[in-house]
Simulated scan of single mutants.
Amino acid sequence: MEFTINSPIDMHLHLREGAMLERVTPLTSEHFSAAIIMPNLVPPVDNLERLLQYRQEIEAARGDDVFDPLMMLFFRQYSEAELLAAREHIFGIKLYPAGATTNSEAGVKALDEVEETFALMEKMGIPLMIHGETHGFVMDREKEFLPVYAKLAEKFPKLKITMEHITTRDAVELLDRYENLYATVTLHHLVITLNDVAGGLLNPHLFCKPIAKRPEDREALLQAALAGHPKLMFGSDSAPHPISKKECCGCAAGLFTAPVCLPTLVELFEQHDALGNLQAFVSGNAQRIHGFTPPAKTVKLEKIGMDMPARYGDVVPYRAGETLPWAVTDIS
């Protein structure tokens, strides 16, 4: 059995820097046509010079792969001149509430103090992507942030807003209330719940932020993806950490899913007789919503089995050591 995907896009990807970037970039650039690159480095990617240098490093790491890194600025208060200079080089701007996740300490502390930048982005047609969590009880952080999305969508109706890596049924329901509100969802949030992370022995390699939620939340996300919801896009949030940062006290948040994204998505959609909607989820919706065309790439997968390695260097991938039913067999 075979299945073909055209120009898959990862709308949320972490590549890190240095040796880690060199190791993990090819694991995405081989399979994907493009990916939105997260800017929460240390220091953050919050100026044009740093952004252009980071893009050069990614392009060097991708080698000969046909792959477009879609660059993001880390949200801060920007002047109109800064945004005008950066506009042709960026896909959008990523907002992190201060301290909400990895390397987000420089994020926004008070949204009402940065509305001038929102207005400039709306005027210039620059998309806004948001890590939407409060600092409340860990299971409720996304739900508590949803009124912020609603407020922004109402106050800036021409600003294209993406709720990043949504994890709750409530977030899925919010999608249909505002024309300018969109969302990404990860592979792992379509599959796991909090029970997989901490229901038995703690599995640090499944710990992420936002944390996996309840079965009913996973079901709502899954049904929206399987149905080809027109405002929902795939974003892996693949976030590599060395074993020393995962198997330790103070475990870092993030799953490294890049090597298994497409095979596992095909497996998942096949199980639910929804392969006809996978193309929209991994590419078509993003192209239509954002009005861009990624580089042409055709990825063929076959149901021949693929043994996942236990490690990629010092990083443990999602589904490490498993045999996956599907494998990528040709890229053109």
Rank of each mutant, 00 (worst) to 15 (best):
E322K: 13
A100W: 04
L128D: 09
A224H: 05
N180I: 01
V266L: 06
Q271Y: 13
D307T: 10
H229C: 07
L278K: 05
I5Y: 12
M121R: 10
D64T: 13
P204I: 00
E142N: 00
A286M: 07
R23E: 10
I192N: 07
L21C: 10
P309H: 02
T193G: 08
M124P: 06
S33I: 04
H14K: 07
I166Y: 06
T167D: 01
A153V: 04
E49C: 08
L120W: 15
G99W: 03
V24Q: 02
T101R: 05
N6P: 12
L146N: 09
T162K: 06
V328N: 09
F145N: 04
M121T: 00
T134V: 08
L222V: 01
L128V: 03
H89L: 08
W326Y: 15
P39Y: 13
C248T: 15
R62N: 11
S244I: 11
F234T: 00
L128P: 14
V138L: 15
R55H: 03
K303F: 06
D65M: 07
L52N: 07
A286G: 05
T257Y: 02
M124E: 11
A296K: 15
T293D: 11
R214F: 09
I9V: 14
E133S: 04
P317V: 14
A239P: 05
E247P: 09
A81Q: 14
G92H: 00
A220G: 08
G125V: 06
E88Y: 08
F137Q: 13
E2Y: 14
L268H: 07
S29E: 05
M121A: 00
N47G: 02
P127E: 11
A320N: 08
G136V: 05
A19D: 13
E322S: 13
F234Q: 02
A183T: 02
I37N: 03
S79R: 06
S7I: 01
T134M: 12
P44Y: 13
L13H: 10
K231V: 02
P127V: 05
N203W: 00
F145M: 08
H205M: 11
G99R: 11
R141D: 01
Y182C: 08
L52M: 14
D112E: 11
H272Y: 15
I37A: 04
F75R: 05
K303M: 09
K213L: 08
E164N: 05
L51S: 04
V148M: 11
A258H: 03
Y78I: 02
E154C: 08
F156Q: 08
A60D: 12
L255H: 04
H89F: 15
S236Q: 03
V114G: 00
A274L: 04
L111Q: 13
L70W: 13
D68M: 13
A85E: 14
M129A: 10
E116F: 08
L206N: 02
P295G: 10
Q53G: 06
L73E: 02
I192F: 12
L232P: 01
K160R: 15
A61Q: 05
E216D: 14
N40D: 12
C248R: 07
R141E: 04
A171C: 14
